[in-house]
Amino acid sequence: TGYYDVLGVKPDASDNELKKAYRKMALKFHPDKNPDGAEQFKQISQAYEVLSDEKKRQIYDQ
């Protein structure tokens, strides 16, 4: 599964769309709200870390 799929956004998503999707998913799977969501929360955080950084995103998109 790709990072875009993890966040539920298209590859041409804007920074604002990425942030909005990340916040929505992070709230849904945060371990405090969803004890079984810890692994998914890590994936969401990693996806956002890469896609929100312009240089990392360019490398990922290659």
Rank of each mutant, 00 (worst) to 15 (best):
S14Y: 00
S14T: 14
D12K: 04
E39H: 07
K20W: 10
A26I: 14
Y60P: 02
M25P: 01
T1R: 14
R57S: 03
D53T: 06
I59F: 09
K56M: 10
S52D: 02
T1I: 14
P35G: 06
E54A: 15
M25C: 13
Y4H: 03
P11A: 08
I44W: 02
K55V: 12
K19C: 14
D53C: 11
S45K: 15
K19D: 07
Y3W: 11
A13G: 02
K56L: 13
H30R: 09
D53F: 07
E49D: 09
P31D: 08
V6W: 07
E49Q: 11
F29Q: 03
L51K: 02
A26R: 13
N16F: 13
L27C: 14
H30C: 13
N34T: 08
I44M: 00
A21V: 05
D53L: 05
D12F: 07
N16Q: 14
Q62N: 10
I59C: 13
Y4G: 01
D32L: 12
K33M: 12
V9R: 00
M25Y: 05
D5K: 11
H30D: 10
E39Q: 09
K10R: 13
D5M: 10
I59T: 10
D36Q: 12
K24S: 11
Y3A: 03
G8S: 03
L27P: 02
S45E: 13
F41M: 10
K42N: 08
Y4A: 00
Q62S: 10
A13I: 06
R23H: 12
K42F: 11
A38T: 06
Y3T: 01
Q62M: 12
V50T: 11
F41V: 01
Y60D: 01
Y3M: 04
Y22S: 00
E49C: 14
A26C: 15
A38G: 09
I44Q: 00
S52R: 12
E17G: 03
K28T: 08
Q62C: 12
K20G: 06
F29E: 00
N34V: 07
A26S: 10
K10G: 10
P11Y: 08
N34F: 08
H30E: 03
Y48E: 02
L27M: 12
D15H: 15
G2C: 15
Y3E: 02
A26K: 10
E39D: 12
D61T: 05
E49T: 09
Y3G: 00
G8A: 06
F41E: 02
D15S: 14
D5L: 10
P11E: 04
T1C: 15
S45V: 15
G2Q: 10
I59W: 11
L51C: 04
K20R: 13
D61R: 05
P31Q: 08
P31G: 07
A47R: 01
D36R: 09
F41L: 06
Y22A: 01
S52N: 05
D61S: 06
P31V: 06
L27E: 13
K24D: 12
D53K: 09
Y60A: 04
T1E: 08
I44F: 04
Q46G: 05
E54Q: 13
R23Y: 13
A13F: 08
E54T: 14
K42Y: 10
S45N: 11
F41N: 00
E39F: 08
M25S: 03
K33V: 14
A38E: 09
G2S: 15
H30L: 07
E54C: 14
E39Y: 10
Q62L: 12
L27D: 13
P31H: 08
K24M: 13
D53H: 05
D61C: 05
K33Q: 10
E49A: 13
D53Y: 05
E17C: 09
T1M: 14
Y48A: 02
Q43V: 13
V9G: 03
N34R: 05
R57D: 01
R23S: 09
G8P: 00
S52F: 06
P31A: 09
G8Y: 02
K28F: 08
G2H: 14
Q43T: 08
L51M: 02
D12A: 05
D32M: 11
L51E: 02
G2D: 14
K24T: 08
Y60H: 03
I44A: 04
K56Q: 10
Y22V: 00
D15Y: 15
D36N: 12
D32H: 07
D32Y: 08
Q43I: 15
K56S: 11
V50G: 02
I44G: 02
G8L: 02
D36T: 09
D32N: 12
K56G: 05
K10A: 12
E39I: 10
I44S: 01
Y4R: 02
K28R: 09
H30M: 06
F41Q: 02
A38F: 11
Y48I: 02
L18G: 00
Q58D: 09
D61E: 04
K33P: 01
D5F: 10
Y22L: 05
R23A: 13
H30A: 11
N16D: 15
D61H: 05
A38I: 10
G8D: 05
E49K: 13
S14I: 03
K55S: 10
A38D: 07
Q43Y: 12
A38C: 11
D12T: 12
K24Q: 10
D5Y: 11
K10Y: 07
A38Q: 10
Q62P: 04
R57W: 04
H30P: 03
D61K: 04
Q40R: 13
L18Q: 01
E39S: 09
R57K: 04
V6E: 02
K33D: 06
P11V: 07
N34H: 08
D32G: 08
D36F: 10
Y4S: 02
R23Q: 14
D36A: 11
Y3S: 01
G2L: 13
I44R: 02
D5T: 10
Q46F: 11
A21D: 00
S14F: 05
E39P: 05
S45T: 14
P31T: 09
N16E: 15
D61I: 06
Q40E: 08
D32S: 12
D32Q: 08
L7T: 01
I44H: 02
F41C: 06
K20A: 15
E49W: 13
R57H: 03
E39W: 10
D15P: 15
Y48Q: 02
A26N: 04
K56E: 04
V6R: 06
V6C: 09
V50C: 08
E54N: 12
Q62V: 07
D15I: 15
V9M: 02
F29K: 00
D12Y: 09
K33I: 14
A13R: 00
P35Y: 02
N34M: 07
D36Y: 06
T1G: 12
R57P: 03
G37E: 09
K56Y: 05
Q62A: 13
V9N: 00
Q46I: 15
V9P: 02
F29S: 03
Q62W: 08
G37I: 04
S45F: 11
G8I: 01
V50Y: 08
Y4L: 03
V6Y: 03
A13H: 00
A26H: 15
F29Y: 13
R23I: 14
K28L: 14
K56C: 13
L18N: 01
M25H: 04
K19R: 14
D12Q: 06
K55Y: 13
Y3P: 05
M25G: 05
G37N: 14
L7E: 02
K19H: 09
E17Q: 08
Y22I: 02
K28W: 06
S14W: 01
N34S: 08
A38W: 13
T1Q: 13
A26V: 13
Q62H: 11
P31F: 08
Q40P: 04
Y60V: 05
D12V: 05
K10D: 08
Q46A: 09
K56H: 04
S52T: 08
A13L: 01
Y48K: 01
K24Y: 11
R57L: 03
D32R: 10
Q58K: 14
A38H: 09
D53P: 00
R57V: 03
V50A: 07
E49F: 12
G37R: 07
A21M: 02
L7K: 01
Q46Y: 11
K19M: 12
K56P: 03
E49I: 12
L51V: 05
A21I: 03
R23T: 11
H30G: 07
Q46N: 10
I59G: 06
Y48L: 03
A47I: 06
K33C: 14
H30Y: 03
K19Y: 15
Y3V: 02
L51T: 04
K20H: 10
V50Q: 03
R23N: 11
K42G: 04
K55N: 08
Q58A: 13
A13Y: 03
K24W: 07
L18R: 00
K42M: 09
D32P: 07
K20L: 13
F29H: 05
P11D: 04
E54Y: 14
Q40N: 06
L7N: 02
K24V: 08
P35Q: 07
L27R: 13
Y4N: 01
E49G: 06
S52M: 13
A38V: 08
R23M: 15
K55Q: 09
K42P: 06
D15L: 15
